[in-house]
């Protein structure tokens, strides 16, 4: 027997639609690297602006009317939500459409959605941020929070990989971040003339990393699924357990609130149960092909 658990909800006063976006205006567009730009967005409605808060790792659905909607992580500082940064790589219709826009143009925005990086877990521990390419922007809000309360945490490491040096993101901020107490190591798949840094996959950096205490470390990872699996495997070799690792996952999403069915991965709705999961909760699902 299925009890009438939702009787209350069917009887309760009508809920507002989850589908109506708020209008945001593009205040500024910062070109980052080829095919990637950061859009700085602000609500046109004062009430919407005043009530909007987000946590590191959460995302918005950005809506370009007539083209479609895309899930984009918020890449800015959670303590300054007046300007919402979204760092976007051109991947298809919506993301290409956005490149046609200029400051002053408007968009729709729904959000914030999803789970966040567990910042509380970082207190008193070493923190490893391991990422590649467009995976850095979703971690940037966490970096801002860690650096703002630097004394609360142990050693902070960013291990960042990219195809080639010219597509490493947010380079202009790296010096600031280093000064504030973040150790940064970069690696590229393909070296170019003048590159003096590491060459190879990001897991190599993790293999060689010292100055962290595996028993008292948390690791956040954002990147393609294969990369996250290799990072986790390397982390295990370095003495971490799955309970110390968090990853950010992605799937096709239409509604972002667990109602359209697209983003399911086994029992999880990536949009509302994720995108950030503790690795032990998601690893068995990530290894089944085509789940």
């Amino acid at each position: 027997m299925i009890s009438n658990a939702s009787k209350m909800a069917t009887d309760s006063p009508r809920s507002p639609s989850l589908w109506v976006p708020k209008t945001v205006v593009i205040r500024k567009i910062t070109p980052e690297v080829e095919n990637v730009a950061t859009y700085h967005l602000a609500f046109t409605d004062a009430d919407a602006a005043a009530s909007y808060r987000f946590k590191p790792g959460q995302f918005n659905m950005l809506y370009m009317p007539g083209v479609g909607e895309s899930a984009i992580s918020i890449s800015g500082d959670p303590e300054s939500p007046e300007l919402l940064d979204h760092t976007i790589r051109v991947a298809g219709n919506v993301t290409r459409g956005l490149t046609q826009l200029k400051p002053g143009d408007t968009l729709g925005l729904r959000g914030p959605f999803g789970s966040s990086w567990p910042m509380g877990q970082c207190v008193g521990r070493d923190v490893l941020l391991v990422t590649g390419g467009i995976g850095l922007p979703p971690l940037r809000p966490a970096i801002y929070q860690l650096l703002k309360r630097r004394q609360d945490f142990g050693n902070l490491h960013l291990l960042y990989g990219a195809r080639s040096p010219d597509v490493l993101l947010h380079q202009n901020e790296f010096d600031d971040w280093k000064r504030s107490g973040l150790t940064i190591q970069k690696t590229v798949d393909r070296s170019v003339f003048g590159w003096k840094g590491n060459v190879g996959v990001v897991t190599l950096l993790l293999e060689r990393l010292h100055s962290f205490d595996p028993s008292n470390t948390v690791l956040f990872c954002c990147g393609p699924e294969v990369m996250m699996r290799f990072v986790a495997r390397t982390a295990f070799d370095r003495g971490l357990t799955a309970e110390q690792i968090w990853v950010s996952t992605e799937r096709n999403m239409q509604c972002a609130v667990g109602l359209c069915g697209h983003c399911q991965l086994g029992p999880q709705f990536i949009c509302k149960d994720g995108p950030v999961f503790r690795y032990d909760q998601i690893a068995p699902l990530l290894t089944v092909e085509g789940l």
């Binding site: 939702s6 909800a9 069917t10 989850l18 109602l259």
Partner: peptide, 26 residues
Amino acid sequence: LAAIRIQDRVFVGGDYVDSTYQKRRQ
């Protein structure tokens, strides 16, 4: 009836309520 109860859970039983379903259901 059971199917309606199940869809009630999906569309109005969680944190996010689908208002198009809810309005019709009421």
